[in-house]
Protein backbone atom coordinates (compact mmCIF):
# COMPACT_ATOMS: atom_id res chain seq x y z
CA UNK A 1 0.00 0.00 0.00
CA UNK A 2 2.69 2.46 0.97
CA UNK A 3 4.83 1.86 -2.10
CA UNK A 4 1.85 2.36 -4.40
CA UNK A 5 1.23 5.64 -2.62
CA UNK A 6 4.78 6.81 -3.15
CA UNK A 7 4.54 5.94 -6.84
CA UNK A 8 1.39 7.95 -7.47
CA UNK A 9 1.78 11.63 -8.30
CA UNK A 10 -1.93 12.13 -8.06
CA UNK A 11 -4.37 9.84 -6.34
CA UNK A 12 -8.15 10.07 -6.31
CA UNK A 13 -9.81 7.88 -3.73
CA UNK A 14 -13.57 7.45 -3.77
CA UNK A 15 -14.20 10.98 -4.97
CA UNK A 16 -17.87 11.83 -5.23
CA UNK A 17 -19.84 14.99 -5.77
CA UNK A 18 -23.49 15.91 -5.37
CA UNK A 19 -25.30 19.17 -5.96
CA UNK A 20 -28.42 20.19 -4.17
CA UNK A 21 -30.90 19.59 -6.95
CA UNK A 22 -34.41 20.93 -7.54
CA UNK A 23 -36.60 20.41 -4.47
CA UNK A 24 -33.66 19.65 -2.15
CA UNK A 25 -33.01 16.18 -3.60
CA UNK A 26 -29.25 15.72 -3.90
CA UNK A 27 -28.18 15.25 -7.49
CA UNK A 28 -25.13 12.99 -7.70
CA UNK A 29 -22.84 13.98 -10.57
CA UNK A 30 -19.76 11.93 -9.68
CA UNK A 31 -19.58 8.65 -7.74
CA UNK A 32 -16.71 6.72 -6.32
CA UNK A 33 -13.96 7.89 -8.65
CA UNK A 34 -10.71 6.14 -7.82
CA UNK A 35 -7.53 6.16 -9.88
CA UNK A 36 -3.83 6.98 -9.68
CA UNK A 37 -1.71 9.04 -12.04
CA UNK A 38 2.02 8.23 -12.12
CA UNK A 39 4.67 10.97 -12.20
CA UNK A 40 5.22 12.18 -15.76
CA UNK A 41 2.22 10.31 -17.07
CA UNK A 42 -0.21 11.74 -19.64
CA UNK A 43 -3.76 10.69 -18.78
CA UNK A 44 -6.84 11.76 -20.71
CA UNK A 45 -10.42 11.59 -19.51
CA UNK A 46 -13.33 11.03 -21.90
CA UNK A 47 -17.05 10.66 -21.35
CA UNK A 48 -20.41 11.58 -22.80
CA UNK A 49 -22.28 14.71 -21.76
CA UNK A 50 -23.36 14.41 -18.14
CA UNK A 51 -20.33 12.38 -17.12
CA UNK A 52 -19.02 15.27 -15.01
CA UNK A 53 -15.57 15.44 -16.69
CA UNK A 54 -15.15 19.16 -16.10
CA UNK A 55 -16.51 18.95 -12.55
CA UNK A 56 -13.97 16.21 -11.83
CA UNK A 57 -11.10 18.34 -13.04
CA UNK A 58 -12.31 21.30 -10.96
CA UNK A 59 -12.55 19.05 -7.92
CA UNK A 60 -8.96 17.90 -8.41
CA UNK A 61 -7.82 21.54 -8.43
CA UNK A 62 -10.12 22.18 -5.44
CA UNK A 63 -11.95 24.95 -7.28
CA UNK A 64 -14.89 22.80 -6.13
CA UNK A 65 -14.67 20.84 -2.86
CA UNK A 66 -15.68 17.19 -3.29
CA UNK A 67 -18.64 16.09 -1.16
CA UNK A 68 -16.92 12.76 -0.50
CA UNK A 69 -13.52 11.16 -0.92
CA UNK A 70 -10.17 12.85 -1.26
CA UNK A 71 -7.61 13.98 -3.83
CA UNK A 72 -3.96 13.47 -2.89
CA UNK A 73 -0.85 14.88 -4.51
CA UNK A 74 2.41 13.21 -3.47
CA UNK A 75 0.38 11.58 -0.71
CA UNK A 76 -0.91 14.87 0.68
CA UNK A 77 -4.51 15.94 0.60
CA UNK A 78 -5.28 18.90 -1.66
CA UNK A 79 -7.24 21.47 0.32
CA UNK A 80 -7.04 24.62 -1.74
CA UNK A 81 -6.33 25.66 -5.35
CA UNK A 82 -2.86 26.58 -6.49
CA UNK A 83 0.22 24.82 -5.17
CA UNK A 84 1.56 21.97 -7.26
CA UNK A 85 -1.30 21.99 -9.77
CA UNK A 86 -2.13 24.39 -12.51
CA UNK A 87 -5.21 24.63 -14.64
CA UNK A 88 -5.67 25.33 -18.35
CA UNK A 89 -9.24 26.35 -19.11
CA UNK A 90 -11.31 25.63 -22.20
CA UNK A 91 -12.06 29.25 -22.94
CA UNK A 92 -9.13 31.55 -23.13
CA UNK A 93 -9.16 33.03 -19.69
CA UNK A 94 -6.38 35.55 -20.30
CA UNK A 95 -6.76 38.96 -18.70
CA UNK A 96 -7.55 41.34 -21.59
CA UNK A 97 -5.85 44.32 -19.92
CA UNK A 98 -2.51 42.54 -19.51
CA UNK A 99 -0.18 42.01 -22.43
CA UNK A 100 1.06 38.53 -23.24
CA UNK A 101 4.17 38.57 -21.03
CA UNK A 102 2.23 39.98 -18.07
CA UNK A 103 -0.45 37.34 -18.56
CA UNK A 104 2.15 34.57 -18.51
CA UNK A 105 3.64 36.06 -15.34
CA UNK A 106 0.21 36.42 -13.70
CA UNK A 107 0.43 33.32 -11.50
CA UNK A 108 3.91 34.37 -10.38
CA UNK A 109 2.67 37.89 -9.55
CA UNK A 110 -0.06 36.36 -7.39
CA UNK A 111 2.55 34.33 -5.53
CA UNK A 112 4.62 37.39 -4.75
CA UNK A 113 7.52 36.70 -7.12
CA UNK A 114 9.42 39.96 -7.80
CA UNK A 115 8.30 41.55 -11.05
CA UNK A 116 11.61 41.23 -12.93
CA UNK A 117 12.07 37.58 -11.96
CA UNK A 118 8.50 36.83 -12.98
CA UNK A 119 9.02 38.43 -16.39
CA UNK A 120 12.22 36.52 -17.13
CA UNK A 121 10.60 33.21 -16.12
CA UNK A 122 7.57 34.10 -18.23
CA UNK A 123 9.78 34.82 -21.22
CA UNK A 124 11.29 31.35 -20.97
CA UNK A 125 7.88 29.66 -21.13
CA UNK A 126 6.65 31.97 -23.84
CA UNK A 127 9.57 30.79 -25.93
CA UNK A 128 8.79 27.18 -25.04
CA UNK A 129 5.30 27.55 -26.58
CA UNK A 130 6.78 29.28 -29.62
CA UNK A 131 5.52 32.82 -28.95
CA UNK A 132 8.75 34.53 -27.93
CA UNK A 133 8.11 37.40 -30.36
CA UNK A 134 4.66 38.24 -29.04
CA UNK A 135 5.45 39.38 -25.48
CA UNK A 136 4.07 42.89 -25.98
CA UNK A 137 0.88 41.91 -27.80
CA UNK A 138 -2.52 41.95 -26.11
CA UNK A 139 -4.74 38.85 -26.11
CA UNK A 140 -7.32 40.42 -28.45
CA UNK A 141 -4.59 40.80 -31.08
CA UNK A 142 -3.88 37.04 -31.15
CA UNK A 143 -5.63 34.11 -32.84
CA UNK A 144 -7.45 31.46 -30.80
CA UNK A 145 -4.57 29.00 -31.13
CA UNK A 146 -2.03 31.59 -30.00
CA UNK A 147 -4.17 32.54 -27.01
CA UNK A 148 -4.29 28.91 -25.92
CA UNK A 149 -0.50 28.71 -26.19
CA UNK A 150 -0.26 31.75 -23.92
CA UNK A 151 -2.71 30.04 -21.57
CA UNK A 152 -0.44 26.99 -21.50
CA UNK A 153 2.66 29.11 -20.91
CA UNK A 154 0.88 30.84 -18.02
CA UNK A 155 0.03 27.49 -16.45
CA UNK A 156 3.62 26.25 -16.89
CA UNK A 157 5.23 29.44 -15.57
CA UNK A 158 4.30 28.65 -11.95
CA UNK A 159 6.27 25.40 -12.43
CA UNK A 160 3.54 23.00 -11.35
CA UNK A 161 4.04 19.24 -11.06
CA UNK A 162 0.66 18.52 -12.59
CA UNK A 163 -1.17 20.25 -15.44
CA UNK A 164 -4.96 19.98 -15.47
CA UNK A 165 -6.34 20.75 -18.92
CA UNK A 166 -10.07 21.15 -19.55
CA UNK A 167 -10.80 20.68 -23.27
CA UNK A 168 -8.23 23.35 -24.12
CA UNK A 169 -8.38 22.77 -27.88
CA UNK A 170 -12.16 22.39 -28.21
CA UNK A 171 -12.71 25.89 -29.58
CA UNK A 172 -9.95 25.63 -32.22
CA UNK A 173 -10.36 24.66 -35.86
CA UNK A 174 -9.39 21.10 -36.82
CA UNK A 175 -5.98 21.91 -38.33
CA UNK A 176 -4.90 24.17 -35.47
CA UNK A 177 -6.05 21.51 -33.03
CA UNK A 178 -3.80 18.86 -34.64
CA UNK A 179 -0.81 21.19 -34.47
CA UNK A 180 -1.54 22.06 -30.86
CA UNK A 181 -1.71 18.36 -29.97
CA UNK A 182 1.77 17.85 -31.43
CA UNK A 183 3.03 20.95 -29.62
CA UNK A 184 1.60 19.72 -26.34
CA UNK A 185 3.29 16.33 -26.73
CA UNK A 186 6.59 18.08 -27.44
CA UNK A 187 6.24 20.32 -24.39
CA UNK A 188 5.24 17.30 -22.28
CA UNK A 189 8.40 15.46 -23.36
CA UNK A 190 10.59 18.49 -22.73
CA UNK A 191 9.19 19.36 -19.31
CA UNK A 192 8.29 15.93 -17.94
CA UNK A 193 5.06 17.25 -16.40
CA UNK A 194 2.23 15.01 -15.28
CA UNK A 195 -0.81 15.89 -17.37
CA UNK A 196 -4.49 15.19 -16.82
CA UNK A 197 -6.42 16.21 -19.91
CA UNK A 198 -10.22 16.22 -20.35
CA UNK A 199 -11.64 16.00 -23.86
CA UNK A 200 -14.76 14.89 -25.66
CA UNK A 201 -12.78 13.95 -28.76
CA UNK A 202 -11.82 10.29 -28.69
CA UNK A 203 -9.03 10.55 -31.30
CA UNK A 204 -7.47 13.38 -29.31
CA UNK A 205 -7.73 11.31 -26.13
CA UNK A 206 -5.98 8.32 -27.72
CA UNK A 207 -3.35 10.36 -29.53
CA UNK A 208 -2.13 12.19 -26.42
CA UNK A 209 -2.44 9.60 -23.70
CA UNK A 210 -0.50 6.92 -21.94
CA UNK A 211 -3.85 5.93 -20.48
CA UNK A 212 -7.44 6.97 -21.20
CA UNK A 213 -10.03 7.00 -18.44
CA UNK A 214 -13.52 6.44 -19.84
CA UNK A 215 -16.27 7.80 -17.60
CA UNK A 216 -19.86 6.61 -17.59
CA UNK A 217 -22.62 9.18 -17.28
CA UNK A 218 -25.16 10.19 -14.61
CA UNK A 219 -23.53 9.89 -12.21
CA UNK A 220 -20.03 9.91 -13.62
CA UNK A 221 -17.91 6.99 -12.54
CA UNK A 222 -14.90 5.19 -13.97
CA UNK A 223 -16.12 2.72 -16.61
CA UNK A 224 -12.74 1.54 -17.77
CA UNK A 225 -9.12 2.62 -17.91
CA UNK A 226 -7.46 1.87 -21.26
CA UNK A 227 -3.67 1.77 -21.63
CA UNK A 228 -2.58 3.13 -25.00
CA UNK A 229 0.40 1.11 -26.18
CA UNK A 230 1.35 3.25 -29.14
CA UNK A 231 5.04 4.15 -29.46
CA UNK A 232 6.31 7.61 -28.50
CA UNK A 233 7.09 10.08 -29.96
CA UNK A 234 3.85 10.13 -31.90
CA UNK A 235 3.09 12.18 -35.01
CA UNK A 236 0.29 12.67 -37.52
CA UNK A 237 1.05 9.27 -39.08
CA UNK A 238 0.20 7.60 -35.76
CA UNK A 239 -3.42 8.56 -36.35
CA UNK A 240 -3.55 6.61 -39.60
CA UNK A 241 -2.45 3.29 -38.05
CA UNK A 242 -5.00 0.49 -37.53
CA UNK A 243 -3.93 0.21 -33.86
CA UNK A 244 -4.89 3.84 -33.29
CA UNK A 245 -8.23 3.35 -35.02
CA UNK A 246 -8.88 0.25 -32.92
CA UNK A 247 -8.37 2.21 -29.69
CA UNK A 248 -10.76 4.93 -30.85
CA UNK A 249 -13.38 2.31 -31.78
CA UNK A 250 -13.00 0.63 -28.42
CA UNK A 251 -13.51 3.90 -26.53
CA UNK A 252 -16.50 4.70 -28.68
CA UNK A 253 -18.06 1.37 -27.72
CA UNK A 254 -17.42 2.16 -24.05
CA UNK A 255 -19.25 5.45 -24.02
CA UNK A 256 -21.67 5.02 -26.95
CA UNK A 257 -24.75 4.25 -24.88
CA UNK A 258 -24.17 7.33 -22.68
CA UNK A 259 -23.63 9.57 -25.68
CA UNK A 260 -26.81 8.29 -27.33
CA UNK A 261 -28.78 8.75 -24.12
CA UNK A 262 -27.48 12.30 -23.78
CA UNK A 263 -28.40 12.98 -27.40
CA UNK A 264 -31.94 11.69 -26.87
CA UNK A 265 -32.32 13.75 -23.69
CA UNK A 266 -31.23 16.86 -25.52
CA UNK A 267 -33.56 16.15 -28.43
CA UNK A 268 -36.43 15.56 -26.01
CA UNK A 269 -35.60 18.77 -24.14
CA UNK A 270 -35.58 20.79 -27.35
CA UNK A 271 -39.10 19.62 -28.34
Amino acid sequence: MTDVKSQAKLRLSNVGHAYKGVGGEPLTVLRDITFDVRPGEFVTIVGGSGSGKTTLLRIIDHLIAPTSGAVLIDGEKIERPGGKLSFVFQTDSLLPWRNVIDNVAYGLDLRGVPKADGRSAARKYLELVGLGGFADYYPHQLSGGMRQRVNLARALAVEPDVLLMDEPFAALDAQTRELMQLELLRIWRETGKTILFVTHQLDEAVFLADRVIALSARPGSVREIVSIDLPQPRDIATKRTPEFQAYVARLWNLIESDVRRGFQDESAASI
Partner: peptide, 29 residues
Protein backbone atom coordinates in the same frame (compact mmCIF):
# COMPACT_ATOMS: atom_id res chain seq x y z
CA UNK B 1 -16.64 40.13 -15.02
CA UNK B 2 -16.26 36.89 -16.94
CA UNK B 3 -16.53 33.98 -14.49
CA UNK B 4 -13.64 32.19 -16.25
CA UNK B 5 -11.26 35.04 -15.40
CA UNK B 6 -12.16 34.74 -11.73
CA UNK B 7 -11.72 30.95 -11.82
CA UNK B 8 -8.34 31.29 -13.53
CA UNK B 9 -7.22 33.66 -10.81
CA UNK B 10 -8.49 31.34 -8.05
CA UNK B 11 -6.82 28.35 -9.67
CA UNK B 12 -3.46 30.07 -9.16
CA UNK B 13 -4.30 30.30 -5.48
CA UNK B 14 -5.36 33.98 -5.47
CA UNK B 15 -6.87 35.35 -2.28
CA UNK B 16 -10.19 37.21 -2.42
CA UNK B 17 -8.34 40.51 -2.14
CA UNK B 18 -6.09 39.52 -5.06
CA UNK B 19 -9.10 38.60 -7.19
CA UNK B 20 -10.59 42.02 -6.49
CA UNK B 21 -7.34 43.85 -7.23
CA UNK B 22 -6.18 41.92 -10.30
CA UNK B 23 -9.48 40.95 -11.95
CA UNK B 24 -12.60 42.75 -10.71
CA UNK B 25 -11.23 46.29 -10.48
CA UNK B 26 -9.40 46.30 -13.85
CA UNK B 27 -12.54 44.85 -15.43
CA UNK B 28 -14.71 47.61 -13.99
CA UNK B 29 -12.40 50.48 -14.97
Amino acid sequence: TNRDLIDASLSFGATDAQVVKTVLLPNSL
